[in-house]
Nucleic acid binder design. Structure first.
Lengths: 158, 158
DNA sequence: GCTATTCAGGACATTTAGTATCCAGGTTAT
DNA sequence: ATAACCTGGATACTAAATGTCCTGAATAGC
Protein backbone atom coordinates (compact mmCIF):
# COMPACT_ATOMS: atom_id res chain seq x y z
CA UNK A 1 0.00 0.00 0.00
CA UNK A 2 1.09 3.50 -0.89
CA UNK A 3 2.94 5.24 1.91
CA UNK A 4 1.00 8.39 1.09
CA UNK A 5 -2.00 6.82 2.82
CA UNK A 6 -0.26 7.15 6.16
CA UNK A 7 0.75 10.74 5.46
CA UNK A 8 -2.76 11.61 4.34
CA UNK A 9 -4.39 10.14 7.42
CA UNK A 10 -2.10 11.92 9.85
CA UNK A 11 -2.50 15.16 7.92
CA UNK A 12 -6.28 14.83 8.05
CA UNK A 13 -6.18 14.29 11.81
CA UNK A 14 -4.03 17.39 12.14
CA UNK A 15 -6.41 19.36 9.98
CA UNK A 16 -9.28 18.19 12.16
CA UNK A 17 -7.76 20.22 15.01
CA UNK A 18 -8.04 23.36 12.88
CA UNK A 19 -11.57 23.38 11.45
CA UNK A 20 -12.21 26.07 8.88
CA UNK A 21 -8.56 27.05 8.72
CA UNK A 22 -6.38 26.61 5.64
CA UNK A 23 -2.98 24.98 6.17
CA UNK A 24 -0.37 24.96 3.44
CA UNK A 25 1.19 21.80 2.07
CA UNK A 26 4.53 23.15 3.21
CA UNK A 27 3.39 23.35 6.82
CA UNK A 28 1.72 19.96 6.78
CA UNK A 29 4.92 18.48 5.35
CA UNK A 30 7.16 20.24 7.86
CA UNK A 31 5.07 18.82 10.70
CA UNK A 32 6.42 15.32 10.04
CA UNK A 33 9.45 16.25 7.95
CA UNK A 34 7.90 14.88 4.76
CA UNK A 35 8.89 15.85 1.18
CA UNK A 36 6.68 18.85 0.44
CA UNK A 37 6.16 18.35 -3.26
CA UNK A 38 5.25 14.71 -2.85
CA UNK A 39 2.88 15.23 0.06
CA UNK A 40 1.31 17.95 -2.05
CA UNK A 41 0.47 15.28 -4.63
CA UNK A 42 -1.39 13.26 -2.01
CA UNK A 43 -3.22 16.35 -0.79
CA UNK A 44 -4.25 17.08 -4.35
CA UNK A 45 -5.65 13.56 -4.60
CA UNK A 46 -7.63 14.11 -1.40
CA UNK A 47 -8.86 17.37 -2.84
CA UNK A 48 -9.99 15.72 -6.07
CA UNK A 49 -11.78 13.11 -3.98
CA UNK A 50 -13.68 15.80 -2.14
CA UNK A 51 -12.08 15.02 1.21
CA UNK A 52 -10.14 18.27 1.37
CA UNK A 53 -10.92 21.66 -0.08
CA UNK A 54 -8.10 23.84 -1.30
CA UNK A 55 -7.69 27.56 -1.74
CA UNK A 56 -5.02 29.22 -3.84
CA UNK A 57 -3.01 32.30 -3.11
CA UNK A 58 -1.60 33.79 0.07
CA UNK A 59 -3.41 32.53 3.18
CA UNK A 60 -4.41 29.59 1.03
CA UNK A 61 -3.93 25.92 1.75
CA UNK A 62 -5.95 22.83 2.59
CA UNK A 63 -8.72 22.11 5.04
CA UNK A 64 -11.20 19.32 5.58
CA UNK A 65 -13.98 19.60 3.04
CA UNK A 66 -16.55 18.13 5.41
CA UNK A 67 -17.08 17.10 9.00
CA UNK A 68 -14.35 14.75 10.22
CA UNK A 69 -17.07 12.31 11.29
CA UNK A 70 -17.96 11.94 7.61
CA UNK A 71 -14.42 11.11 6.49
CA UNK A 72 -13.66 7.43 6.89
CA UNK A 73 -10.27 5.79 6.72
CA UNK A 74 -11.58 3.92 3.69
CA UNK A 75 -12.30 7.23 1.94
CA UNK A 76 -8.64 8.13 2.31
CA UNK A 77 -7.33 4.73 1.22
CA UNK A 78 -9.47 4.87 -1.90
CA UNK A 79 -8.47 8.45 -2.68
CA UNK A 80 -4.74 7.77 -2.41
CA UNK A 81 -4.38 4.12 -3.28
CA UNK A 82 -7.25 3.64 -5.68
CA UNK A 83 -10.34 1.50 -5.45
CA UNK A 84 -8.77 -1.73 -6.71
CA UNK A 85 -8.71 -4.82 -4.52
CA UNK A 86 -5.34 -6.08 -3.35
CA UNK A 87 -6.14 -9.46 -4.90
CA UNK A 88 -6.87 -9.10 -8.58
CA UNK A 89 -8.60 -12.05 -10.24
CA UNK A 90 -7.07 -12.54 -13.68
CA UNK A 91 -9.54 -15.29 -14.53
CA UNK A 92 -6.96 -17.95 -15.20
CA UNK A 93 -9.86 -20.41 -15.33
CA UNK A 94 -10.50 -19.05 -18.83
CA UNK A 95 -7.28 -20.74 -19.94
CA UNK A 96 -8.24 -24.03 -18.26
CA UNK A 97 -9.79 -27.12 -19.86
CA UNK A 98 -13.30 -26.50 -18.51
CA UNK A 99 -13.33 -22.86 -19.55
CA UNK A 100 -16.39 -21.06 -20.76
CA UNK A 101 -15.34 -17.84 -22.53
CA UNK A 102 -18.68 -16.24 -21.69
CA UNK A 103 -18.35 -16.81 -17.94
CA UNK A 104 -17.33 -13.92 -15.69
CA UNK A 105 -14.96 -15.79 -13.41
CA UNK A 106 -14.38 -12.72 -11.27
CA UNK A 107 -17.92 -13.34 -10.04
CA UNK A 108 -18.25 -17.12 -10.28
CA UNK A 109 -14.79 -18.40 -9.32
CA UNK A 110 -14.94 -19.49 -5.71
CA UNK A 111 -11.39 -18.39 -5.02
CA UNK A 112 -12.12 -14.96 -6.44
CA UNK A 113 -15.26 -14.78 -4.31
CA UNK A 114 -13.49 -15.83 -1.12
CA UNK A 115 -10.77 -13.24 -1.63
CA UNK A 116 -13.38 -10.62 -2.44
CA UNK A 117 -15.30 -11.47 0.72
CA UNK A 118 -12.19 -10.97 2.83
CA UNK A 119 -11.52 -7.68 1.10
CA UNK A 120 -15.04 -6.56 1.94
CA UNK A 121 -14.59 -7.22 5.65
CA UNK A 122 -11.41 -5.16 5.46
CA UNK A 123 -13.19 -2.29 3.80
CA UNK A 124 -16.16 -2.49 6.10
CA UNK A 125 -13.81 -2.15 9.06
CA UNK A 126 -12.06 0.86 7.54
CA UNK A 127 -15.36 2.43 6.53
CA UNK A 128 -16.44 2.25 10.17
CA UNK A 129 -13.54 4.34 11.40
CA UNK A 130 -13.64 8.09 10.81
CA UNK A 131 -11.01 10.76 11.20
CA UNK A 132 -13.14 12.09 14.06
CA UNK A 133 -12.94 8.69 15.77
CA UNK A 134 -9.15 8.72 15.55
CA UNK A 135 -8.99 12.33 16.71
CA UNK A 136 -11.18 11.50 19.68
CA UNK A 137 -8.93 8.60 20.67
CA UNK A 138 -5.89 10.85 20.48
CA UNK A 139 -7.69 13.53 22.48
CA UNK A 140 -8.52 11.07 25.25
CA UNK A 141 -4.92 9.96 25.54
CA UNK A 142 -3.31 13.36 24.95
CA UNK A 143 -5.72 16.17 25.84
CA UNK A 144 -3.12 18.76 24.84
CA UNK A 145 -2.75 17.40 21.31
CA UNK A 146 -5.05 19.89 19.54
CA UNK A 147 -3.44 22.93 21.14
CA UNK A 148 0.05 21.53 20.62
CA UNK A 149 -0.70 20.95 16.97
CA UNK A 150 -2.09 24.43 16.51
CA UNK A 151 0.80 26.20 18.16
CA UNK A 152 3.39 24.10 16.39
CA UNK A 153 1.87 24.77 12.99
CA UNK A 154 1.60 28.46 13.84
CA UNK A 155 5.26 28.60 14.75
CA UNK A 156 6.40 27.12 11.44
CA UNK A 157 7.49 30.30 9.77
CA UNK A 158 6.81 30.16 6.07
CA UNK B 1 -0.81 -8.49 -4.25
CA UNK B 2 1.41 -10.94 -6.07
CA UNK B 3 -0.35 -12.64 -8.97
CA UNK B 4 1.31 -15.88 -7.89
CA UNK B 5 -1.21 -16.07 -5.05
CA UNK B 6 -3.98 -16.73 -7.54
CA UNK B 7 -1.91 -19.34 -9.37
CA UNK B 8 -0.99 -21.05 -6.12
CA UNK B 9 -4.56 -21.26 -4.90
CA UNK B 10 -5.89 -22.73 -8.12
CA UNK B 11 -2.99 -25.17 -8.25
CA UNK B 12 -3.68 -26.28 -4.69
CA UNK B 13 -7.33 -26.89 -5.51
CA UNK B 14 -6.25 -28.97 -8.48
CA UNK B 15 -3.82 -30.91 -6.34
CA UNK B 16 -6.62 -31.56 -3.85
CA UNK B 17 -8.31 -33.66 -6.54
CA UNK B 18 -5.25 -35.91 -6.71
CA UNK B 19 -4.33 -36.77 -3.12
CA UNK B 20 -1.06 -38.61 -2.73
CA UNK B 21 -0.10 -38.11 -6.34
CA UNK B 22 2.84 -36.01 -7.50
CA UNK B 23 2.17 -33.51 -10.28
CA UNK B 24 5.00 -31.72 -12.05
CA UNK B 25 5.29 -27.96 -12.25
CA UNK B 26 5.14 -28.30 -16.00
CA UNK B 27 1.74 -29.97 -15.85
CA UNK B 28 0.34 -27.56 -13.31
CA UNK B 29 1.50 -24.68 -15.49
CA UNK B 30 0.09 -26.19 -18.68
CA UNK B 31 -3.30 -26.52 -17.00
CA UNK B 32 -3.80 -22.75 -17.05
CA UNK B 33 -1.17 -21.86 -19.63
CA UNK B 34 1.10 -20.25 -17.06
CA UNK B 35 4.87 -19.67 -17.41
CA UNK B 36 6.38 -22.89 -16.07
CA UNK B 37 9.56 -21.51 -14.56
CA UNK B 38 7.76 -18.73 -12.76
CA UNK B 39 4.97 -20.94 -11.42
CA UNK B 40 7.73 -23.25 -10.24
CA UNK B 41 9.02 -20.41 -8.08
CA UNK B 42 5.64 -20.08 -6.39
CA UNK B 43 5.40 -23.84 -5.88
CA UNK B 44 8.84 -23.79 -4.29
CA UNK B 45 7.62 -21.11 -1.90
CA UNK B 46 4.63 -23.27 -1.00
CA UNK B 47 6.99 -26.16 -0.47
CA UNK B 48 9.25 -24.13 1.82
CA UNK B 49 6.15 -23.09 3.76
CA UNK B 50 5.21 -26.72 4.29
CA UNK B 51 2.03 -26.46 2.24
CA UNK B 52 3.28 -28.69 -0.56
CA UNK B 53 5.77 -31.52 -0.49
CA UNK B 54 8.03 -32.06 -3.45
CA UNK B 55 9.89 -35.04 -4.83
CA UNK B 56 12.74 -34.87 -7.31
CA UNK B 57 13.47 -37.08 -10.26
CA UNK B 58 11.26 -38.89 -12.75
CA UNK B 59 7.72 -39.41 -11.43
CA UNK B 60 8.46 -36.54 -9.10
CA UNK B 61 6.47 -33.36 -8.64
CA UNK B 62 4.34 -31.59 -6.06
CA UNK B 63 1.48 -32.70 -3.86
CA UNK B 64 -0.35 -31.28 -0.87
CA UNK B 65 1.76 -31.75 2.24
CA UNK B 66 -1.28 -32.08 4.49
CA UNK B 67 -5.03 -32.44 4.42
CA UNK B 68 -6.69 -29.75 2.31
CA UNK B 69 -8.87 -28.88 5.29
CA UNK B 70 -5.72 -27.77 7.09
CA UNK B 71 -4.56 -25.43 4.32
CA UNK B 72 -6.16 -22.02 4.60
CA UNK B 73 -6.20 -19.29 1.98
CA UNK B 74 -4.23 -17.21 4.46
CA UNK B 75 -1.50 -19.86 4.56
CA UNK B 76 -1.08 -19.46 0.82
CA UNK B 77 -1.16 -15.66 0.86
CA UNK B 78 1.54 -15.61 3.55
CA UNK B 79 3.68 -18.19 1.74
CA UNK B 80 3.62 -16.33 -1.58
CA UNK B 81 3.15 -12.70 -0.64
CA UNK B 82 4.87 -12.60 2.73
CA UNK B 83 3.51 -11.87 6.19
CA UNK B 84 3.72 -8.08 6.00
CA UNK B 85 0.60 -5.99 6.32
CA UNK B 86 -0.54 -4.01 3.30
CA UNK B 87 -0.39 -0.86 5.40
CA UNK B 88 3.07 -0.35 6.82
CA UNK B 89 3.34 2.12 9.71
CA UNK B 90 6.53 4.13 9.22
CA UNK B 91 6.05 5.93 12.52
CA UNK B 92 6.03 9.40 11.09
CA UNK B 93 4.94 10.56 14.54
CA UNK B 94 8.59 10.15 15.55
CA UNK B 95 9.38 13.13 13.33
CA UNK B 96 6.54 15.20 14.81
CA UNK B 97 6.75 17.84 17.52
CA UNK B 98 5.29 15.64 20.28
CA UNK B 99 7.55 12.71 19.46
CA UNK B 100 8.94 10.38 22.06
CA UNK B 101 11.86 8.43 20.55
CA UNK B 102 11.23 5.56 22.95
CA UNK B 103 7.62 5.07 21.94
CA UNK B 104 6.68 2.23 19.60
CA UNK B 105 4.19 4.08 17.44
CA UNK B 106 3.38 0.94 15.49
CA UNK B 107 1.58 -0.14 18.64
CA UNK B 108 0.41 3.14 20.12
CA UNK B 109 -0.51 5.25 17.09
CA UNK B 110 -4.26 5.07 16.70
CA UNK B 111 -4.08 5.18 12.92
CA UNK B 112 -1.64 2.30 12.92
CA UNK B 113 -3.93 0.39 15.25
CA UNK B 114 -7.03 1.02 13.18
CA UNK B 115 -5.31 -0.15 10.02
CA UNK B 116 -3.96 -3.15 11.85
CA UNK B 117 -7.42 -4.02 13.14
CA UNK B 118 -8.82 -3.97 9.61
CA UNK B 119 -5.97 -6.14 8.42
CA UNK B 120 -6.77 -8.64 11.16
CA UNK B 121 -10.39 -9.00 10.06
CA UNK B 122 -9.10 -9.62 6.56
CA UNK B 123 -6.74 -12.30 7.76
CA UNK B 124 -9.32 -13.88 10.02
CA UNK B 125 -11.64 -14.20 7.05
CA UNK B 126 -8.95 -15.81 4.89
CA UNK B 127 -7.84 -18.08 7.72
CA UNK B 128 -11.40 -19.38 7.94
CA UNK B 129 -11.43 -20.59 4.34
CA UNK B 130 -9.56 -23.76 3.47
CA UNK B 131 -8.63 -25.32 0.14
CA UNK B 132 -11.06 -28.09 1.05
CA UNK B 133 -13.84 -25.52 1.47
CA UNK B 134 -13.16 -24.13 -1.98
CA UNK B 135 -12.91 -27.61 -3.47
CA UNK B 136 -16.23 -28.53 -1.90
CA UNK B 137 -17.91 -25.47 -3.37
CA UNK B 138 -16.55 -26.32 -6.80
CA UNK B 139 -17.66 -29.92 -6.39
CA UNK B 140 -21.22 -28.87 -5.54
CA UNK B 141 -21.45 -26.71 -8.61
CA UNK B 142 -19.48 -28.96 -10.96
CA UNK B 143 -19.59 -32.59 -9.79
CA UNK B 144 -17.41 -33.65 -12.72
CA UNK B 145 -14.58 -31.26 -11.82
CA UNK B 146 -12.32 -33.76 -10.03
CA UNK B 147 -12.50 -36.33 -12.79
CA UNK B 148 -12.10 -33.69 -15.49
CA UNK B 149 -9.02 -32.35 -13.76
CA UNK B 150 -7.50 -35.80 -13.38
CA UNK B 151 -8.04 -36.82 -17.00
CA UNK B 152 -6.86 -33.50 -18.34
CA UNK B 153 -3.65 -33.61 -16.32
CA UNK B 154 -3.12 -37.21 -17.37
CA UNK B 155 -3.50 -36.28 -21.03
CA UNK B 156 -0.83 -33.58 -20.86
CA UNK B 157 1.99 -35.48 -22.50
CA UNK B 158 5.27 -34.65 -20.84
C1' DG C 1 26.58 -46.93 -13.37
C1' DC C 2 24.15 -44.15 -17.07
C1' DT C 3 20.63 -41.30 -18.52
C1' DA C 4 16.58 -38.71 -18.48
C1' DT C 5 13.46 -36.28 -15.51
C1' DT C 6 12.47 -33.18 -12.04
C1' DC C 7 13.00 -29.99 -8.10
C1' DA C 8 16.16 -26.14 -5.85
C1' DG C 9 17.76 -21.95 -6.21
C1' DG C 10 20.84 -18.31 -7.80
C1' DA C 11 21.71 -14.88 -11.54
C1' DC C 12 19.92 -11.99 -14.59
C1' DA C 13 16.68 -9.18 -17.68
C1' DT C 14 12.36 -6.82 -18.30
C1' DT C 15 8.39 -4.40 -16.94
C1' DT C 16 5.62 -1.86 -13.83
C1' DA C 17 4.60 0.75 -9.73
C1' DG C 18 6.05 3.77 -6.10
C1' DT C 19 8.80 7.67 -4.73
C1' DA C 20 10.37 12.11 -5.59
C1' DT C 21 11.72 16.53 -7.90
C1' DC C 22 11.00 20.39 -10.89
C1' DC C 23 8.71 23.73 -13.52
C1' DA C 24 5.21 26.37 -16.04
C1' DG C 25 0.63 28.13 -15.38
C1' DG C 26 -3.41 29.79 -12.82
C1' DT C 27 -5.48 31.94 -8.50
C1' DT C 28 -5.69 35.27 -4.88
C1' DA C 29 -4.42 38.32 -0.68
C1' DT C 30 -1.97 42.32 0.25
C1' DA D 1 2.30 44.40 -9.17
C1' DT D 2 4.07 41.03 -6.31
C1' DA D 3 4.54 37.16 -3.67
C1' DA D 4 2.35 33.04 -1.88
C1' DC D 5 -0.03 29.09 -3.03
C1' DC D 6 -2.42 25.28 -5.50
C1' DT D 7 -2.62 22.40 -10.16
C1' DG D 8 -0.89 19.31 -12.99
C1' DG D 9 2.32 17.64 -16.40
C1' DA D 10 7.12 16.06 -17.33
C1' DT D 11 10.81 13.71 -15.76
C1' DA D 12 14.06 10.93 -13.03
C1' DC D 13 15.14 7.47 -9.70
C1' DT D 14 14.26 3.38 -7.02
C1' DA D 15 12.12 -0.81 -5.71
C1' DA D 16 9.20 -4.61 -6.60
C1' DA D 17 6.92 -7.76 -9.58
C1' DT D 18 7.39 -10.63 -13.45
C1' DG D 19 9.79 -13.73 -16.21
C1' DT D 20 13.85 -16.45 -18.18
C1' DC D 21 17.94 -19.15 -17.92
C1' DC D 22 21.33 -22.06 -16.12
C1' DT D 23 23.85 -25.02 -12.83
C1' DG D 24 23.45 -28.45 -9.38
C1' DA D 25 21.31 -32.19 -6.75
C1' DA D 26 18.02 -36.03 -6.27
C1' DT D 27 15.89 -40.11 -8.15
C1' DA D 28 13.42 -43.59 -11.19
C1' DG D 29 14.21 -46.77 -14.79
C1' DC D 30 17.30 -49.27 -17.51
Amino acid sequence: MNEGVEWAMHSCVNLSWLPGQAVTAKHLAAFYDLPTAYLNKQLQALSRAGILSSTSGPKGGFQLARDARKISLLDIVVAIDGADDAFRCTEILKAGPAANPKTDYVKTCHISRAMRAAELTYRRELAGQSIADIAEQVLTEFPAAPQNTRTHLANLKS
